[in-house]
Structures are given as structure tokens and as C-alpha cells.
Design a protein around this nucleic acid. Structure first.
Lengths: 419, 419
DNA sequence: TCCATATAGTTCGAGATACGAATTTAAGCT
DNA sequence: AGCTTAAATTCGTATCTCGAACTATATGGA
């Protein structure tokens, strides 16, 4: 019996406590596996007896499996627990030109990966993607699949069950933008869709090094520019899933035309396409160049390419000021191919960000660890798992003077032998 | 190993369910009083027996009192419950020039109200404000005071327990900006401080007509400009309480000097002071004019005043585009004296907002119901009550003053008493 | 007057859950 | 073997919600 009842979402029943603590334990296992029950008790603050009951439940639910037995200088050996790596998720990274489809386990490790050219309309996309998904599922008879996650270069409205805003995905005007329905129908699995920037933000939250970054902005720069905002540990979505669409904030009503129809949006100054435009402006007749190529040129010292990249960096910095001054994140993470030239671009952006900081120390700024496609794919893994891993954030910050409850006596963590 | 641990903060105990349901019931009573237990059960989805137990506790805690008895066509008469209006809060609205101090009951009804000129430094402010507070408390021997809420024209950092950013409050450079400590020490009551725009947002959330606006931006325009952001029903604060400081987003690096030190911030184009500047620019030698006066002039048809007000409206609209495109709120509420000329200014702002909407219907835009000072004061009432009413109320927090400070009447300490 | 009916509110036992002390398990060491 | 140590389980208690049964108090008709 998986999941939990959200019948009266706001109300608490006698099972609410279990739901919360189950989420805490499951997330601790996810982040610190392999880990013994005793260490879970120490890390969570729950009683060992409670941890035993919860882990028993998690094993019954097939989220967790017993791993190797540890070895300690003294005493009974701990049995390590870890996530069940036979639970799998299909993830799709839909982008304007190419679409990646992959199979991942619950740890965000990929077991297969394929790419196809992105179809030109939602109907064909649904057809081709679901076909590939069925193929890939058939290729892994040993796994059981939890669901499907899709990263889209636009916004998905949960109420309408449609993609509602995806200017860079040049599907026809009359398109239904319905990918969700067909995919669920054909595969029989539950489908979760999310904006690419939000997916990257989730990837950072779930798989990033820091366990407790509570206020973060993840900025994805590719064909367009997107921002995933994490506030108090929660991803901001807004009523239509449109929150974070800073890429289309109009900075200059007289600026160049944007794909969204308006003029002078941030992304016309800061996206990969913007960099290409800068390059074309200073070097006529350079059509057909890709951004990747432009980066290579810049990397090998081409003056005009470097100039274009610098202009792009200035463009990014310009928009970052509103995010930094307006939302004051602790951490800013950049995702995009441009991070390959971070040595050159990073300092420009950091300077722009520092200039917008009102008080206190500026946010830490860094490029994402993984490459963009991986980040999006892993983010959608997190998205699918999220609801099973329970209410793992409790929004409320604890108050000043520290916790009023004495921490339990903390003994050294047991050291397991890796095998 | 990296010392990361998220212990304790989010665990559920056997009392967690009660904490949540208590919050649900208490908020229902607040919004629908007077209301019977049976209606509470129907509205909440809890069992009547559970509601009885919870209301019994709330009455014991003195948050709720039994009111009049109702009358129905058939059956036993319901006893109505309502908030205990003898529970009071002292609220302070600190502004650059004047400071208001008031006593409110839990329903946001004011029982006294006074004003003093705002002192020129934090030391004097703490002294004079706490003196007035003690006077006002002494004037209401029948009430028991829950705490003190302060609205500040700047940002309060909960970690540092200091006001960290308040450029419009022209306190000296070397000031400690510590109001919180002295007020708590002198009055013996718990003090909560919050930015003025956030306070207004809380006021809308708590006392607004809509019971559940989940995504809202409240924009306060006065000496400066501030934004309180409500996302998914939660006020966004950010790590240092700096979230929402869109007023100091630099729009134009070559623009006029701002009080924060930077140039071309949104508020130099959109605040009351901006309007006065516009007026002075077109009419030399008009010093000493107040914004209120300017509004009167505009209201009576003065061409230059109208022009200044229109420019201010354009300035507001300009910055609203980033909030609307970037955060996509359902509702935008404006607070400020300028709303007196809403007929003229409103349409300009609405047009600007509409132009930044990417897809779907634009947010509803409206001026706040109450005048600015009332909005701020009522917001701080909500702020003080929030932690006792919130669905995630944690009763452990209420043991705060167990140490050295003067004991005060408080929930949960009184054991088995009257009624 | 008495009884049926309707509604409000309370009581009580069952089930879920966390806690914490006691107990069992399983290793190393003397 | 017996002692020590630590992991993991067991069991009694307290909290809390649920739901059925019960009590309290109205109206209105036989």
C-alpha cells in the first residue's frame, strides 16, 4: 500500500505522523545510503524502535532493500539499508531540436539513454516518444517502472493538463500541446511534466551536494533562458506553473523581437541565440553556426566570438540583478553549455550579481555539476519520486535560539566497510 | 564527512496531528465566527468528537470563548464559538517620519491608537516606543497581551535580530538598528518584526475577503516601494528576510541616485518621492511639498501634478512587468496613498501588467481596502498570531520565556482551571 | 401529554503511532 | 566461558482520530 491519502489534504489523521516520518527516513536513506537503522535513528532524532517499524514498512513497500552487513570495532553488526535499485523511472528531456529518453533508477543513475529528433507537433511527439518508451521498458524486464517524467522547454499547466507556454518549441499554432494525456494513455504509467528550469532546480535540490539549500535560483541558459526558484526548500510554481519565467521579463520595450511576441525580453540579450546574434552582427555572413561551435571558437581565442560571449555574459548579468535584488537567494546555479567557458563568463556574472546585493554577503554563484541534459533528466527523476518520498519539507524555518529540545546523545557514526 | 544533518526540524510526534488540526479549527473559527462545533466539523471534515476535543482545548487555552446560543428550526441549539476578544496584541507601524502604536484584538479590531514622530536613532526609538507601549498596556487592564508586532520600513534579519536594510529610515550610520532586543527586554513580551510590504501581504492573507488566494503580490508605494510575495499561501522571506526587495532592482545603471546607494532602482521611478521629483523637475521652486499635497493638486486638476502622477504610474508599471512575468501572481494588490487617485493611475498600471502577461488571463489588480497604515498594523497582528494559528503550530515554541524573563499569561501553562 | 424526529454535542472503545525502557541478538575481547 | 558493546526488537504507555452509540434539547403531530 503505497503513498498516502490526500483526501483532506490539510487535515491530519492518525497516519499523518507516519507519513511525515516515513518521508524523513526515506530521504535520509536516499542521501546517506548505505545506512543502518541505528544511524537513521541518530540522524533523524527518532527512536530506534520507530525507525525499525518505518524501515520495515519501506521494505514491504519495496522502496528500500537490505544491503550488506557492516563491521564495527565492537558489538552487533548493523545491516545497511539502501534504495531499491530495481525501481525505475522513464525520463524524457524534450528540447526544441532533439529529445532524449532515458531509464533511471531511484538514485538518478541512468541505465539506458537514447535520442531522437524532436517531432514538429504534439501528436507526432506523443506517438514517437511513447513508442520509444515502450521499447525501453521492454528492454528492462528486470525493473519495475514507477512513472514517467518529462522536462519541457516551456510551462505545463496542471489544471489544463497542457503545455501552455513554449515559444521556443516551434509547434504549430493550432497544436493541442497535449503530450500528457496520450503518454499516460499509451504507456499506462503516470506522467509528470515540468519546465526544464524547474527540473534543473529539483535536480540540484535532490542530487546536489548541499542537503539544506533552502533559497536558490537555478538559471538555465540555452535556446531561451529559464529560472527555477527554490524558496524555503520549495520549488515555486505559481498558479499556472508560470512562476520563474524571468526570461520573458521585458527589459526594453524597444529591444529586438522575442519568440514570445514581445520585445526586449531578457532572453533576447542572454540566451545562446542572443550570443549567435551578437556574433552575426559583428561578422556578416556567418549563418548556420551553432552555439556549440561559437563556444569552440571563443575557447580557441577567436576575438569576435569572445566578444559575442562577453556580450551574452553582460546580458545574463543584467537580468540576474532583478533575481538577486528581488529574491535574495543564498545560491545561484547556472546550467547551460556556456558554463564550459565559466572562467571567462563567470566573473562577469558574479560582478553583476554582487552589484545588485543590497546588504550582507552575495549569494554563492556556480555552474551546475552535470551537463544540461543530465541535469534536466535527473530533475525529472526527482519530480516523479517526489510525491512518494513524502512531505519531506516542512516549510517553516525553526526559530532562533536553536531547538528547544535537547538533541539525543550523539555517538559516533558507525563506519561500514564498503564492499 | 561533511557535517550535514537535518535532524529534528521536521519530525512528527504523536501530537503533530493535533497541532495541525488545532490550526485548522482555530482558523475556521477566526474566519467564520460565530460558528458551532457541528458546523466546524462539517467545514473541516473532522469528526464532531474530534472537534469537541479540540475546541475544549482552545477554550482552555483561552483562544476561544463560548458565545451566544443559536436557534434552529429543529433540534438542540448550537452554542456558538468565537475568538476570545480579550486577547490583545500591541502593534507598531514604524515609518520614516511618524510611528503609530496601537492595541488590537485577535480580530484585527483596534482598541487604541496613537502616533509619535519617529525618533532619529534606534536607541531613542526603543526608549520612546516601549514607553508608549507600557502606557497603552496599562490603559487596558482587562486585556491580556499576547505579543508585540512591529512593521518596519526595511528588512529584519531573524538571525541577526537586527534591522539590516532600511535606507529610507535615515538612522545614523553607526546605529545598532536593534529595536527588537530592547523592546522585548523592557516590555517582557515577545516581539515580531516584519517588513512593511510583507505586513501588508499578511494583512491581505488574513483579513482579505478571499479565503485562499495562494499566489499574490502586494506592492506598497510610499517613500520607497516594497513587494510582499505570497506563493502557495506562504509569505516569501528569503534567507535574510530580504526577499521581495524589488524596489531596489536596478533598472538603469545611469538613472538617478537611490537612497540605497545604487542608481536607477525601481523606486526612484515609482515611489512617492519619485512623483515629487517629477513635479519639481517641471516646476522649479516647489520645495516643501508633500506627496499628499501633490495628490490633492492632481485631484483638483493641476496639469503639472497630473503629469507627475502619470509619470509615477508609468514607473510603477515598468517594474510590475518583472513581477508579473517572473512570478505570475493571481492577484496584485496595491497599497499606498496614490491609490486615492486609482481611477487615473490604475488603468496605466493595469495596462503595463497586461502587457507582461505571457499566457492566460492577467492577474486581478486592485487597491487594498484599508488605508496603508491600517494595512500594516493589521498585518503585524496577523504576524503575531500566525504562529499560534498556523496549521503547523509547534507548541514547544511556546515555552520560550521559561528562562529569565518575566512570566506572562500564556497558553498551556495554566492547568485545569475555570469554566 | 407523549412520542417521533432532528440536530448538537459527548462518551467510549478501537486502531494507528511515537516514545522509551527492557530485552534480545550478535559480534569482539579477555 | 564470561564480559562488553552496539544493533535491533519487543512491549507497555500516552496521544490522537475515528466512528458508533449515547445524551441533550429543540419542534411538532398524534
Amino acid at each position: 500500500m503505497l503513498g498516502m491519502q490526500f483526501r483532506d489534504a490539510q487535515l491530519a489523521t492518525s497516519q499523518t505522523a507516519r507519513g511525515i516520518n516515513r518521508g524523513v527516513v526515506l530521504n535520509l536513506i536516499r542521501r546517506r545510503q548505505p545506512i543502518s537503522r541505528a544511524d537513521l535513528a541518530r540522524a533523524s532524532g527518532l527512536q530506534r524502535s520507530t525507525v525499525s517499524l518505518i524501515t520495515e514498512q519501506l521494505i514491504r513497500e519495496k522502496w528500500v532493500i537490505s544491503g550488506p552487513v557492516g563491521r564495527l570495532p565492537r558489538g552487533r553488526r548493523p545491516t545497511f539499508l539502501q534504495l531499491n535499485d530495481r525501481r525505475a523511472i522513464v525520463v524524457v528531456d524534450l528540447r526544441p531540436t532533439r529529445t532524449a529518453i532515458a531509464v533511471s533508477d531511484a538514485n538518478g543513475r541512468f541505465l539506458s539513454h537514447q535520442e531522437i529528433p524532436t517531432p514538429g507537433d504534439s501528436y507526432t511527439a506523443a506517438l514517437q516518444i511513447s513508442q520509444k518508451i515502450r521499447q525501453m521498458i521492454a528492454g528492462h524486464p528486470d525493473l519495475f517502472f514507477e512513472g514517467i517524467g518529462v522536462s519541457v522547454p516551456g510551462r505545463f499547466d496542471e489544471n489544463k493538463q497542457r503545455i501552455v507556454f513554449a515559444p521556443n518549441l516551434k509547434w504549430p499554432e493550432f497544436d493541442s500541446f497535449d503530450l500528457h494525456g496520450p503518454l499516460e494513455k499509451v504507456t499506462g504509467l503516470q506522467v509528470e511534466m515540468e519546465n526544464a528550469a524547474n527540473a534543473c532546480a529539483l535536480a540540484e535540490l535532490w542530487f546536489g551536494h548541499r542537503e539544506r539549500t533552502r533559497d536558490m535560483a537555478v538559471v538555465t541558459v540555452s535556446e531561451g533562458i529559464g529560472v527555477g526558484i527554490v524558496s524555503d526548500g520549495q520549488l515555486l510554481r505559481g498558479p499556472n506553473g508560470l512562476a520563474g519565467e524571468f526570461g520573458h521579463v521585458p527589459l526594453d520595450p524597444a529591444g529586438p523581437q522575442c519568440s514570445c511576441g514581445a520585445r526586449g525580453c531578457w532572453e533576447v540579450y542572454a540566451s545562446n541565440w542572443a550570443a549567435l546574434r551578437y556574433y552575426h552582427e559583428s561578422r556578416a555572413g556567418s549563418g548556420g553556426l551553432t552555439f556549440r561551435h561559437l563556444l569552440s571558437l571563443a575557447g580557441s581565442g577567436d576575438e569576435l566570438a569572445l566578444k559575442a560571449v562577453d556580450q551574452m555574459a553582460q546580458g545574463i548579468a543584467r537580468g540576474m540583478r532583478m533575481i538577486v535584488a528581488g529574491l535574495s537567494p543564498e545560491e545561484v546555479v547556472f546550467v547551460g553549455e556556456f558554463t564550459r567557458l565559466w572562467d571567462r563568463i563567470g566573473p562577469v556574472i558574479e560582478a553583476g550579481i554582487a552589484s545588485a546585493v543590497l546588504v550582507g554577503k552575495p549569494p554563492s554563484v556556480r555552474p551546475a555539476g552535470a551537463d544540461p541534459s543530465t541535469a534536466r533528466l535527473r530533475g525529472t527523476v526527482a519530480m516523479v519520486l517526489q510525491k512518494h518520498f513524502g512531505p519531506f519539507t516542512d516549510r517553516r524555518r525553526q526559530n532562533r535560539e536553536g531547538s528547544s529540545r535537547q538533541p539525543h546523545p550523539r555517538v559516533g557514526q558507525s563506519v561500514g566497510e564498503s564492499m
